[in-house]
């Protein structure tokens, strides 16, 4: 070995690398939040959702997009059709004996763009009725969701293309739209759409569409509860309790509670607050980035035990 190399390696061996406490904490927390991979996992099967492990990373929010695998398409906006039954929908459908109307979601369009400075990846979902609905309100709801999603993605793509044209190579922008079927059983359907927009720093926004399959109606949070009931206060108080408990347990967690800026503090959820149901049937309240916490907290979610709000629910929920 070259004597200089040997001396440099000796110096390197003597140098002790000490992890800064914050880095060590990030590593511990990331590892602890990794989902379990089942023992019988087949080769090629990937780990489950890593959103919890990644949730505190600035990097994750900036870089939701995959590698520019389609760099060959640089300069071209390319549309192509790729029907694809959503994995989560398929799973939900296969596990549950479906009595109610069968609702399915397919990707009707994928939109990729990458010119080295501006990237987008958009999966546009379309809700479909597998069977002819007896109740026309269900098909109306499905049409409403589809046209809403279409209008939203058209607007986002138009904004993105305008940004590409005006910014040129002076800045980077990213846009991604992805979706997930959160619930699809005989009584309920929830489609979640995640929009990520980035230029410099990024921001995420969730959109939820819920259909009550019994009534065929699109539902927002307030529709679950009896008119005049105090569900907002009860759920908000539970969220405040969870926020305070999390902050007490981990100094890295911050929510806007009892800050010196009164206008910033979280006080109450809204009647059209984003929500979905957990696998256990509990309500999960979803906030957007910066809604109740600094951006480093991502988009916080709070699962509310059914027993907290059960007395206010309308019959049938």
């Amino acid at each position: 070995m070259n004597p200089i190399d040997k001396r440099i390696r000796d110096l390197a061996r003597k140098e002790k690398t000490v992890l800064p406490p914050e880095t060590e904490r990030v590593i511990r927390r990331t590892l602890s939040r990794l989902p379990d991979i089942s023992e019988s996992a087949e080769d090629g099967e990937e780990a489950g959702p890593l959103s919890a492990a990644r949730s505190l990373s600035r990097f994750h929010r900036k870089r939701r997009l995959p590698r520019p695998a389609l760099a060959a398409l640089a300069g071209l906006a390319v549309f192509f059709l790729l029907p694809n039954i959503s994995a989560s929908a398929a799973e939900a459908m296969s596990e549950l004996p479906v009595i109610g109307p069968i609702v399915d979601v397919i990707t009707i369009r994928n939109y990729f763009y990458d010119d080295g400075y501006h990237r987008s990846r958009i999966d546009i979902p379309q809700v479909e009725l597998e069977t002819q609905a007896e109740d026309s309100s269900l098909s109306d709801s499905v049409s409403t969701i589809n046209s809403d999603v279409q209008a939203m993605t058209d607007r986002l793509i138009a904004e993105f293309e305008a940004d590409c044209a005006s910014l040129g190579d002076s800045a980077h922008t990213e846009l991604s739209v992805s979706y997930q079927v959160i619930t699809n059983n005989d009584a309920w359907f929830t489609l979640q759409i995640l929009v990520y927009r980035g230029s410099g720093s990024g921001s995420q926004t969730y959109y939820y569409y819920h259909i009550d399959k019994q009534s065929g109606q699109i539902v927002q949070l307030s529709d679950l509860f009896r008119a005049g009931s105090d569900y907002q206060s009860v759920i908000s108080n539970e969220i405040l309790r969870q926020m305070k408990a999390q902050m007490a347990a981990d100094e890295n967690i911050t929510y806007w509670v009892d800050t010196q800026y009164e206008g910033m503090d979280f006080h109450s959820i809204t009647p059209d607050q984003n929500f979905f149901f957990s696998e256990d049937g509990n309500l999960v309240i979803q906030f957007d980035e910066y809604e109740v916490a600094p951006g480093s907290m991502g988009c916080p979610q709070f699962e509310i035990s059914r027993s907290v709000y059960e007395e206010f629910l309308k019959e049938g929920y």
Partner: peptide
């Protein structure tokens, strides 16, 4: 830290 977290995931 961000690179580490991303790499770990």
């Amino acid at each position: 830290r961000d690179a580490l977290q991303e790499a770990l995931c």
